[in-house]
């Protein structure tokens, strides 16, 4: 199930993004932000909070069109984008399964989701309403919705924020399991360096506001070799390369 078609990477080239408040104060959120994510690669946008990571993601999702610059999304396969937002953003009046199926294009609405629900441990929860789920389970449902659409690119906005560390860790492993089953070009926003080192092939380090790219940190090691010992080595070499970040 490798993505098919020409390997067009995710290419971002935002010249400037300015927020203007009602009082006429303008804040430059992004300036000369440009980077690339290769086909089938899992990348993390790492930066201090408030630096414009979420703004970048909103621009890529097409939710914010008021910026100067351009970007190119991966093509081939489905051409679809999937997002996992900071909040699970499930429709409270639809069951878990309905929430997932509603996000699917008409042709896929009836597809078999047993495998996905099983992997994410949601098999018994398909007919529950989101209010009946814990936050951790709701986030799993949001992951299920994103992966069910078989997207060409997956954008994640701090999907494990406001979870306790154990739940977050379990969800990171689940994310890797479903992602490995169908490696999709993915870009995840985070301010958690450990999370970035554990999940990604490449970390894009952003500066303070206005955000631009400070540098790249490639993690070439396969994920199953990233044990605690290796992680602390990775942390050390990251800090050597980017002193003063995170």
């Amino acid at each position: 199930m490798q993505p098919v078609g020409a390997a067009v990477p995710l290419r971002v080239d935002i010249a400037e993004k300015i927020f203007r408040s009602a009082q006429g104060v303008s804040v430059t959120a992004l300036q000369d932000l440009s980077f690339e994510v290769r086909q089938g690669e899992f990348a993390c946008l790492l930066g201090p909070s408030g630096c414009g990571k979420t703004t970048t993601l909103r621009i890529l999702l097409g939710l914010d069109k008021d910026f100067s610059g351009s970007f190119q999304l991966p093509e081939g396969g489905s051409n679809r984008i999937a997002a996992v937002f900071q909040e699970p953003t499930l429709l409270p009046w639809r069951t878990v399964e309905q929430n997932v199926r509603l996000a699917l294009p008409k042709g896929l609405r009836t597809k078999n989701l047993d495998g996905l629900f099983d992997t994410l441990g949601l098999a018994g929860m398909r007919s529950l309403y989101p209010a009946e789920l814990s936050l951790g389970l709701a986030r799993r449902a949001a992951l299920a919705r994103a992966f069910a659409t078989e997207p060409a690119v997956l954008l994640l906005d701090e999907p494990f924020a406001s979870l306790d560390e154990r739940t977050a860790e379990r969800l990171r492993h689940l994310l890797l399991t479903v992602w490995s089953a169908r490696p999709t070009t993915a870009l995840m926003v985070t301010h958690n360096l450990r999370e970035a080192l554990m999940l990604s092939d490449r970390i894009i380090v952003l500066s303070q506001r206005p955000a631009h790219v400070l540098g790249m940190f490639d993690v070439r090691l396969p994920r199953h070799y990233r044990n605690p010992q290796v992680m602390s080595d990775l942390l050390r070499s990251f800090h050597q390369k980017f002193p003063g970040v995170a």
Binding site: L61, I81, A83, F85, L91, K106
Partner: peptide, 27 residues
């Protein structure tokens, strides 16, 4: 607006938006 943005990202059709996103919120 979070629900509308979710519906936009996942490309809900206009009928789905009315039936599953708009009307339940207005209920």
């Amino acid at each position: 607006p979070g629900y509308a943005e979710m519906a936009a990202v996942y490309r809900f059709g206009p009928l789905d938006r009315i039936r599953h996103v708009l009307l339940p919120q207005l209920q």
